[in-house]
């Protein structure tokens, strides 16, 4: 029986049926590890992040890495052509991936990527928004909520200031960006359910 692992953080959606579950997982981990390391490197550059306790740094990264990756890799989703580019560099149409058993998660990620891309943010704005996504005091397991909250508020103020300066006639952009946070949380929850299904299989 042919198997597929429909995640763009994989090299390809095709899975060698001869390989064991462990081998498939190892290959997948090998594929997404560099992207996760990049998220950690990004976090280290957020002013104030390294001042948080090591426990909270790990907790924020554990909880938020998926959401940061969704923002950083929004460009892998070609809304016009309805294709997704996997890390191996090959593009797959939504219909092809659907036939491979992709879930509603990919469709939701398409919708998210489209709305985010339509905001037309600069690299600097995207970077600051990504920092806001990562530093959230509402993640589970945070031990010093006040410190994380203070950093989060500083980052949100900086984002508002940057957006207001760059888009003086589009005041709704900042609000739209903040509304992306619950969208990302919802995608994160759907992703966790997918992981559970993958593990069960």
């Amino acid at each position: 029986r042919r198997m597929h692992l429909v995640c763009p953080m994989n090299t390809s959606p095709h899975v060698d049926p001869q390989k064991s579950g462990h081998e498939v997982w190892e290959e997948f981990a090998h594929s997404f590890t560099p992207a996760v390391r990049e998220v950690v490197e990004f976090a280290k550059k957020i002013p104030g992040f390294r001042d948080l306790s090591q426990h909270d740094q790990v907790s924020l990264l554990k909880a938020g890495t998926f959401e940061v990756l969704v923002v950083r890799f929004a460009s892998l989703f070609d809304v016009k052509d309805r294709t997704i580019t996997f890390l191996g560099g090959k593009k797959y149409s939504v219909d092809t991936l659907r036939a491979m058993g992709s879930s509603d998660l990919l469709n939701s990620m398409f919708d998210f990527s489209e709305k985010l891309t339509n905001l037309g943010l600069s690299e600097e704005e995207m970077s600051l928004f990504t920092a806001v996504v990562l530093v959230s005091a509402h993640r589970s397991g945070i031990e010093n909520v006040n410190s994380v909250e203070a950093l989060q508020e500083t980052l949100i103020r900086a984002l508002r200031s940057l957006i207001t300066r760059n888009h003086p006639n589009e005041s709704a952009i900042f609000t739209k960006l903040l509304l992306k946070l619950p969208d990302l949380r919802s995608l994160n929850n759907m992703h966790s359910e997918q992981l559970l299904a993958f593990k069960v299989h």
Partner: peptide
């Protein structure tokens, strides 16, 4: 399955990436 990050091996990757930097700073 309350902690998908740990199950993915993410925590290990994250800790190593964070610690690596600490070691560099200590050197």
């Amino acid at each position: 399955f309350s902690d998908p990050a740990s199950n993915l091996g993410l925590e290990d990757i994250i800790r190593k990436a964070l610690m690596g930097n600490l070691e560099e700073r200590q050197e």
